[in-house]
Design a protein around this nucleic acid. Structure first.
Lengths: 161, 161
DNA sequence: ACAATATCATTGGCCGACCAACTATTGCTA
DNA sequence: TAGCAATAGTTGGTCGGCCAATGATATTGT
């Protein structure tokens, strides 16, 4: 017996044309995201940094001292995630945190010189990753992808319910 | 002092045009993936399932009993990840595992009827997620995205070094 | 036949993501 | 001013990735 996944598929379409079933975009996105993170991990491993750390350091390098709540908003991740990432980065002296003078609740984060050096040494790997990711893409492909990603990001950000 | 991230940026380009810097595609992919997973989590939460579990159950529903090593290959994830996911799914009676008779190393996995029911009840949410994700997309946009994702997946899969 | 090797799965440990619950402030308001 | 609500971060727990190391079987080679 051939198990079919959906009892509610469109009537008369028992040919599974090209496995275009429900949520195909979502599933594809899932797989791509996993593969990309894994590839990033492999590339960064030799340098001793994790993918998420690269992203966080990059943000800090671009903008100078930042309060954590701002990182939460800009990176779109949970406050607790930011806390834990920063704790790990701080342990490695890649980041510094100090309490704000006027509002003692907030903690202000900045990249250290060691962090900036590490980031620079990583840049080449990261560029290479984009090269691998987009291998065989024309300039038009890349810009189409870029634009689609921006739209996806926007759509998903307006769905916090 | 305005911290600039790259000492190696293209000469004469101190205008940060539209933050098209190194690894922009990679970073955008990161953000989209995070947002998508988070949105999936929120939608599935009410049903009591996690995004990864939906994917795993979907695969099992589509193809019948499967050895774990095959799931590893098809889903492109680590064996240990498969083990742990299946342990959790098994605890919830959404999946069954039994040792293969001829080769006692392999364990064969199948979705249970309970798992299949749950999956059906989720389908609508998952479809809705794709709808949210691709809101405002034309049919052409969707198919472009689909095709790009397939190409990305392929590129990334051929980079296991 | 026995040893070496390869394969399948598991365990343990770490990172990153979430949520829920909590502490410590600050701010507002009655 | 006293008290309550809002805000900033942290802690603890769970899921899903990864890697490294192990145990249990199969397979292969000599």
């Amino acid at each position: 017996m051939e198990p079919t996944r959906t009892a509610t598929s469109a009537p008369g379409s028992d040919v599974c044309d090209d496995e275009q079933r429900v949520g195909e975009i979502g599933h594809a996105l899932f797989r791509v995201a996993r593969a990309h993170r894994a590839a990033a991990g492999r590339l960064l491993r030799e340098i001793g940094l994790y993918p998420g750390q690269e992203v966080m350091l990059g943000r800090l390098a671009d903008h100078g001292p930042t309060r954590q709540s701002r990182l939460v908003l800009e990176l779109g991740i949970d406050p607790s995630t930011v806390t834990k990432m920063l704790q790990r980065l701080e342990r490695q002296d890649l980041v510094e945190r100090r309490a704000d003078a006027v509002d003692r609740r907030v903690s202000v984060v900045a990249i250290t010189s060691k962090g900036r050096e590490l980031l620079d040494s990583i840049e080449e790997s990261w560029r290479r990753l984009d090269e691998i990711t987009c291998a065989g893409f024309t300039e038009a492909d890349r810009s189409a992808l870029s634009s689609l990603l921006v739209r996806l990001e926007h759509n998903l950000s307006t769905c916090q319910e």
